[in-house]
Amino acid sequence: MTTRCPCGLGDPYDTCCGPFHQGRRKAPTAEALMRSRFSAFALGHEDYLLATWHPSTRPASVDLDPDQRWTHLEVLSRTGGTPFQTTGTVEFRAHYRWQGQRDVLHENSRFVREDGAWLYLSPAESRSD
């Protein structure tokens, strides 16, 4: 049985975000990195989250809450972030359940590409819907 990737594209995990999480490929766009980071949150890949976080804003650790279950992702818009650019933003809604309650993280994330790798920089804005 093939497991679908949590990122929302509908592709099998092994050919979608799996290669990014395993270090076999780098995300080619800011959106691909954002989707792979959502999948990392959903699957508990704390090391990947830290590795794809820009050093200037990266926390010392990521402690994922076992009571929080990321359920699905909606990409709302994007600016820049192509393989030929060095900056980009991705606005999204990340849906989750925490202690039985549904909630949404709405963020417009900023990304930068350094040495050929996209990195999460910071939220441009965020709010709960």
Score class of each variant (00 low, 15 high):
20 F>M: 14
112 V>S: 10
115 D>R: 11
98 W>A: 13
1 M>W: 15
80 G>K: 05
92 F>G: 02
40 A>T: 02
37 R>C: 08
116 G>D: 07
3 T>L: 14
79 T>S: 09
110 R>C: 12
33 L>W: 04
88 G>S: 04
66 P>E: 07
69 R>M: 13
27 A>Q: 08
40 A>L: 10
6 P>A: 07
123 P>N: 01
43 L>R: 01
66 P>K: 04
31 E>W: 08
44 G>E: 04
64 L>F: 07
21 H>M: 03
97 R>N: 12
32 A>Y: 13
9 L>K: 14
122 S>Q: 11
43 L>D: 05
29 T>Q: 07
24 R>V: 12
108 N>W: 00
59 P>C: 05
35 R>K: 06
118 W>M: 05
79 T>L: 14
121 L>G: 06
116 G>K: 15
111 F>T: 01
108 N>T: 08
65 D>V: 03
53 W>S: 10
102 R>H: 11
126 S>M: 00
108 N>S: 12
45 H>I: 02
29 T>H: 08
123 P>L: 03
14 D>I: 09
97 R>K: 13
110 R>P: 02
126 S>N: 13
57 T>Q: 11
33 L>Y: 02
68 Q>L: 14
47 D>Q: 15
43 L>C: 04
81 G>K: 01
29 T>P: 02
29 T>I: 03
89 T>N: 12
94 A>Q: 15
122 S>T: 14
100 G>D: 03
43 L>G: 07
125 E>G: 02
91 E>G: 02
11 D>Q: 11
57 T>A: 12
72 H>A: 13
82 T>V: 04
31 E>G: 01
15 T>M: 08
52 T>D: 00
36 S>R: 02
96 Y>M: 11
105 L>N: 07
66 P>I: 06
57 T>H: 06
98 W>L: 14
108 N>A: 04
1 M>G: 06
99 Q>H: 14
19 P>L: 00
110 R>I: 07
111 F>H: 05
28 P>M: 15
44 G>C: 01
